[in-house]
Write a protein that binds this DNA or RNA. Structure first.
Lengths: 332, 332
DNA sequence: TTGTAGGCGTTATCAT
DNA sequence: ATGATAACGCCTACAA
């Protein structure tokens, strides 16, 4: 593979000159510019980005940590970030945090090793303190869907609790009182918040909140199925269910279909969603929307701005929004 | 950020020695090894991969070109490839070909610029000749879901036509004769093949194939909705539909729901699928499965093998498989 | 406007 | 077992 020296030789100039015309830096005569470009063309020369990074000690690269690549949720998040970085002319490196504190740490380390000059972190297992420590490094970063005291200016957050409250209130307003809850893994903050929204809504309406109405799952379809089954067996008389993720909602649908229980005639449902899986089900499921795409775009813009040395204006807090479809009926 | 020189200085040895202990190359005394490692620890030293690549002129990096990051289809593909590369201890760079020949070319160029030592190409718009030319470069590559004469040994392929035939035959065997077809963009080979499977099945059964039964869409939900609508308006008497993608199938469901047409009572459906979207719909849709995950894993293993200098055994051809669910009824 | 030379952080080849 | 030293491909003062 041709190097800058080859180009220089062919064009009959020094390597410095070649570098100048390539980077459009300094003054070069029309004439040599043409000669150089011809040589570049002829040799099919492509600058080595590693050498360039070494020389400039800058990489123009951002890093993104996500849990996984699997599923629409992450792919939308990823796509938004990538598109923004493309727009900004920055490279993007992606690393998976998988599902443990340790591998999230590794993912970050890997990106730092690659000399990323900015990070977007969508981590679920790292402790607040560890993230706070990161602030000591010079690499700027943005926290996606996480709020940490002392890092407020770097957090793109969503009001999960309020969202849950909104969802359950919708059910309450339609006359439902006996409402099951398919919760996510409550050892994780956001899942806990979604659950607390449920509790809060019930309490505000003076409705008793019974432990047997609640089942936990790992945000996945199978878990949703099991949770729905568990709730139903303990409470055959529920009239509604609140699901904390769309995959779990799909699982709940699986069971209801099996038992020939109709939505919304027999049971009403409202669910969290972010990638419109709930719109594929029949009937369409009323949801509270978690706008991961918009949040990802916001994080990407913010990071880009930081990397360019700008100081950050306050980050937007995203609010939940109810999307009414056909899965809730009025109870009389 | 500490460099190898810093470590060398602190440990009181030469840079060469540090390099040796880091790479476990050559013979080093226990004693200095320890001293070096302590220095590494203390300085929090991390080797610069760019410098390393420069020096070794090797990157240990594979590249992947996909159309987009959006949607489960690509994210599953991506995840499989990444996981295999992780297993092999290789880096993976991903680039999007978007939807044009030009940007697919750019995507490849970008990966070559980054000195990828192997490529997995899932391209839709590049001409056969352009791919054939690629063979002249020294970089090995695998073509995912594409078959090109002269490149057979580098192609991971699926029998789209046979899959379509299987799907439509299933309908025929259940007594359906008037069968609509929601085709993908037929200027693309695989979409055309899926369509030809439909034609072939009809012809084999001596069923007339009417142009008005066919509508084309861009593999997306909206398009599926429109296509279904078009077919239905021209042929109110169809008893079944064959959909060439799961998103389009979701769109078809949207319309049918709107018109209060029941599946499978009024209309039977069989669809292509690859990420189980069809299992979320009610009723579950009978599908022919396009095993993108397995194919991606296969491609990744093959490429990895090539990159390691091994010669490739023949690549597997993936066969379609019918997954019966509840969307097809017997016509009598 | 252009060339020279040093440096970016490694590895690799010789010596010692 | 270890140390010089020369690459690797590029950029960037500084000089001319």
């Amino acid at each position: 593979m041709a190097s800058i020296s080859d180009v220089a030789a062919l064009a009959g100039v020094s390597r410095a000159t070649v570098s100048r015309v390539l980077n459009e830096t300094g003054q070069i005569s029309k004439c040599t510019k043409i000669r150089v470009n011809q040589a570049v063309e002829k040799l099919n020369y492509r600058p080595n980005p590693f050498a360039r990074s070494l020389a400039t000690s800058s990489t123009n690269t951002a890093g993104l940590v996500v849990t996984s690549y699997r599923g629409s949720f992450f792919s939308e998040l990823l796509a938004e970030v990538q598109e923004e970085m493309d727009r900004q002319g920055k490279f993007l490196l992606i690393s998976r945090g998988k599902r443990s504190r340790k591998s999230e740490l590794q993912a970050i380390q890997k990106l730092m090793d690659m000399r990323c000059e900015g990070l977007i972190l969508h981590t679920r297992n790292l402790h607040d303190e560890e993230l706070l420590e990161l602030k000591n490094e010079k690499t700027p970063f943005i926290l996606l869907d996480r709020k940490i005291n002392g890092l407020e200016d770097r957090c793109v957050v969503f009001e999960h609790e309020e969202a849950g409250r909104l969802a359950v209130n919708h059910l309450l307003q339609h006359g439902h009182r006996k409402i099951g809850c398919i919760a996510g893994p409550r050892h994780r903050l956001t899942a806990r918040l979604r659950f607390q929204g449920y509790e809060m809504a019930l309490k505000e309406s003076g409705v008793e909140c019974n432990e047997s109405l609640i089942a936990e799952a790992d945000y996945d379809r199978q878990g949703g199925y099991r949770a729905m089954s568990e709730i139903l067996s303990k409470n055959p008389d529920i009239t509604a269910v609140y699901s904390c993720s769309e995959e779990m909602c799909a699982g709940a649908f699986d069971l209801l279909r099996e038992l020939n229980i109709k939505v919304p005639e027999d049971i009403s449902i409202v669910s969290f969603d972010s990638v419109n899986l709930c719109t594929v089900m029949t009937p369409g499921v009323t949801t509270v929307h978690f706008p991961i795409k918009e949040m990802a775009a916001c994080a990407a813009k913010a990071l880009s701005s930081l990397m360019d040395g700008h100081t950050l204006s306050t980050l937007k807090t995203f609010k939940p929004e109810l999307r009414q479809r056909e899965s809730v009926r009025v109870l009389n």
